[in-house]
Structures are given as C-alpha cells and as structure tokens.
C-alpha cells in the first residue's frame, strides 16, 4: 500500500521533471518584447479599385500609375476596334515618408488635372491595445481644363477648381478580408448651375477579399447624399480583381464611373451600372513601383 503511494508520487515527480524539460520553446516565446504589431497590407494597393484606400506608400517609393477606362458608345454600329472610347489617367505618387504620400496626375477624356496629399493618421494594431482601425486623411485639388458649356457660368481658373476630402477608415478583419468606410466632402468653387449644390457629401464603402496568394476581389460603392440637380447622376460602383505581384500591381474592374478623379467620379457619374453599351466601363489600372530608397 505504502509502496503504491510512493510509486504514484514518483510518477508525479518524474512527470513534473518531464514537463519542465519541455518548455524551452515556451520559455523564449514568453521573452518576446511587447511591441505593437501593425496590420500589414490592409488593401496593399493605394486604390481599392477606383477610389483611394487607407494605404500610403513607404518612404522613397515612387509609383507610376496608368489608369484606363474603356467603353462603347450606345450607337448601334461603330467602326472602333475593341472599344469605342477610352480615357487614361497618368499619374505619379511618391512617399515623402512612411505616413505622407504626394500624388498628381492628368486624365485624357475629361481633361482634369489633380494633385493630392494623403496622410496616414492611425494604423490598425493586431495585438492587444492600440487602434482597431486604420485612419488616413486624404485631400485633393483638381483643375478642370475644359471649358463649361454653360456660357453664363463664371469660368476663371479659380472657378474650375474642386476639392475632395476623404476620411478613410479601414479595418483588416481577417488576413483575407478588409473593409473601408470613407466619409467624403466635395467642394466646387463654382457649381456651374445655380440649382446645383457647391458642396456635396458622400460616403464610400469598399472591401477586399483575398482569394489567392496574389489575387483579391475588390468592390466599391459611393453614395452621394445631395446629388447634382441639373443632370441625372448615379452612384459610382465598381467590381474588380487586383493582382499583386512583384513590383507591378494590376487592377481590373467593371464600373459605371468614367472619370478617375474623386470629385468627378463620385458626383458626376452619369451612367448607371449595367451591361448596356455606354454604361459598362471596363477599367484597367497598372501600377509600377520603383524603390528610390532602399533599406540598408
């Protein structure tokens, strides 16, 4: 009886000794410094599809953007090859530091030139504490180089300027899924028509779902609270695929938005999203990233 008790005790002590010898890896896993871990690649690209994401480029990174939209005219017969019309925005973006990005570009179809500043205010933290959201501030200024049809409107340089402010808020919910909400304020120096609001409010919704190591499906929608009165406008919608590989990022999308600058495509999209000619736009963005500054 006594021996049996001792035997169990012995077993227990041996067990204890064994458990103790197992924890070498556990010992060092406890020694990790308690540093904040930031969410990486919430969207990976600076555009979700047609609109801006919370991502900014790191310091010294230069991005070349070529954004294209192709569409057909509703005319029953046309002579064009593949697509009747196309518009391109050629732009550059540069990371002044890890938080601040500066960008500029010009669009062929509507002749809008734009420049913007993007500042990463808060980055989501994935371990305990810190922010559950990433927040980026965006401000652009765009210049409409084409004259307006309204001969009564003031149309000096200052009148052709528009300003868009985004408060981009995003969260990476899982390693594969991110969502963004972006309250937006758009102000035009001249509304062209008296009935049209000079300042418009909109809210953008965007999402990304990663379906492969390098491929993700993205979608975006912009709701305008006080749309223009003098023309029929629709809310911009896009459904796309992003392909991120090496120094090149390709984005393909189906959208109803023809313009590529924020104030134009959010408030002045004149076609609804459907598959009719004139309405469906096929979009293709190519981004090439050049590292002007390298680590080490």
């Amino acid at each position: 009886m006594k021996n049996k008790k001792l035997f169990f005790l012995l077993c227990f002590v041996f067990g204890m000794a064994f458990v103790q010898s197992q924890d070498l890896l556990e010992t060092i896993n406890k020694e990790y410094p308690n540093e904040p871990l930031k969410a990486q690649a919430t969207f990976k690209t600076t555009r979700i599809s047609i609109g801006h994401s919370v991502e900014t480029r790191k310091q010294g990174l230069l991005e070349f953007h070529v954004m294209n939209r192709f569409w057909n005219t509703p005319a029953p017969r046309t002579q064009s090859f593949v697509a009747d019309r196309m518009s391109s925005r050629i732009g550059l973006e540069y990371g002044i530091n890890d938080k601040l990005t500066l960008g500029a570009g010009g669009t062929t179809w509507d002749g809008i030139f734009d420049g913007f500043l993007k500042y990463r205010l808060v980055q989501q933290q994935i371990n305990k504490g810190g922010s559950p959201l990433s927040i980026t501030l965006f401000q652009n200024m765009s210049y409409r180089s084409k004259a307006t049809d309204n001969i009564y409107a003031f149309d000096s340089f200052g009148d052709r300027l528009s300003f868009t402010s985004h408060l981009l808020m995003a969260r990476k919910f899982t390693p594969n899924f991110s969502l963004q909400v972006s309250p937006t304020l758009i102000h035009r120096n001249s509304a062209l028509f008296e009935e049209d609001p000079q300042t418009q409010f909109a809210i953008g919704l965007g999402g990304r779902y990663k379906i492969g190591h390098h491929v993700s499906i993205v979608s975006e929608y912009y709701y305008v609270a006080n749309p223009l009165e003098t023309i029929n406008t629709y809310n911009a919608f896009a459904l796309g695929v992003n392909w991120e590989v090496g120094d090149i990022i390709l984005q393909f999308q189906l959208t109803n938005a023809r313009a590529m600058v924020e104030d134009a495509f959010i408030t002045k999209t004149r076609t609804n999203f459907n598959f009719n000619d004139g309405n469906l736009h096929f979009g293709f963005n190519a981004t090439y990233i050049l590292h002007l500054k390298r680590n080490k």
Binding site: Q40, A41, K44, K58, Q59, G60, L61, I126, P175, H213, H214, E244, V245, G246, D247, I289, H291, R294, N295, K296
Partner: peptide, 20 residues
Amino acid sequence: VFEKELMQEHFNESYIESDI
C-alpha cells in the same frame, strides 16, 4: 527586413503569410 519595402510586404502577405 528586406532591401525593398514592397518585397517585405509581399513576403509577409503572399508568401510566408505572417498573419496566419
């Protein structure tokens, strides 16, 4: 740490999947 920032992002996001 990689020489190229973007490479580091690809490494974590697409190859080694450091979130998982």
